[in-house]
Design a protein around this nucleic acid. Structure first.
Lengths: 150, 150
DNA sequence: ATTAATGCAAATTGTTTGCACGGTC
DNA sequence: GACCGTGCAAACAATTTGCATTAAT
């Protein structure tokens, strides 16, 4: 029985505000998501919970992840190089905005952020009269440690 | 019978270099791709050719697009907002690198490029020792004309 | 009691693949 | 003639959905 955390309060608030129900399953998924860091796929999360014998269906995992994204607690990202068809999720609450670097050699996903870069993007948007709401930058290449190896 | 263009020379060269065959179907797909601008999905391309009564199968369209990407003539991008599962393609040969803005209101995809932005990305990579090979930036928001409407 | 959520399995979507036949080098 | 490519339909992977049942308010 995981102890209540801040995210749980936010999520129950989100649910209540829309007359959605705070179910055992939804809370279990929330706990699972906020119990670990890093990127994960919906199916991986489902399998992980299966193994832990936490009773939940694949459909509910998918449906709940949507709500978590909608509530702003979780972010959906598309990172994988070749199999771009699989969505990944990452915790968003309590974290600052960041971009991703993807090492094509080891597969590692690195996160970084850079204010001047953000500002330059904003400047371009101003120049074109485009109102930015969100953005994602993905840089693919070879990470430092893989370069060292070869 | 479309007249030979530069891309055709490049493509046949690419094929020959790998002992792949220059088939009627591959050339027809190449011509179709370079006969128009903008972004398109593999299936759309297939349907367009069907309507024009150009005999080609869906499988061949997919397989040929792979080769076009491999040859550098075409670029595969993931742009659609919600249905990120669908890949789009765009002409790459003879065009400069660019990023995309996606208007969430009208769906329009705008292209732009900005050297200082590119340079700033390069600088971040240098700082982290990451060797960039390619990148993609997608900014979602509301385009100028949609803002004017509301 | 009312209304929403779950689980299951079937349906969808975009894409890939195995295999017999046909075309290119 | 050797080998590669094509077309078809079946296979796939990730995700979504319809519906009868169960649970939260």
């Amino acid at each position: 029985m995981p102890k209540p955390h801040q995210e749980r309060t936010i999520f129950t608030g989100y649910l209540g505000a829309r007359s959605l129900k705070t179910t055992r399953e939804r809370l279990a998924i929330l706990d699972e998501v906020f119990g670990h860091d890093g990127h994960f796929g919906a199916d991986e999360l489902y399998v992980k919970m299966l193994r832990k014998k936490i009773p939940v269906s694949r459909a509910t995992v998918y449906r709940t992840l949507e709500h978590l994204v909608e509530s702003g607690l979780v972010q959906k990202v598309y990172l994988s190089d070749h199999n771009q068809r699989k969505a990944l999720y990452e915790r968003a609450h309590g974290r600052h905005h960041h971009e991703h670097m993807h090492c094509l050699s080891c597969g590692e996903i690195l996160e970084f952020s850079d204010d001047p870069l953000e500002e330059r993007q904003a400047a371009v948007c101003r120049r074109l009269g485009f109102k930015p709401l969100r953005h994602s930058l993905r840089i693919e290449g070879i990470c430092a440690s893989c370069q060292a190896k070869s």
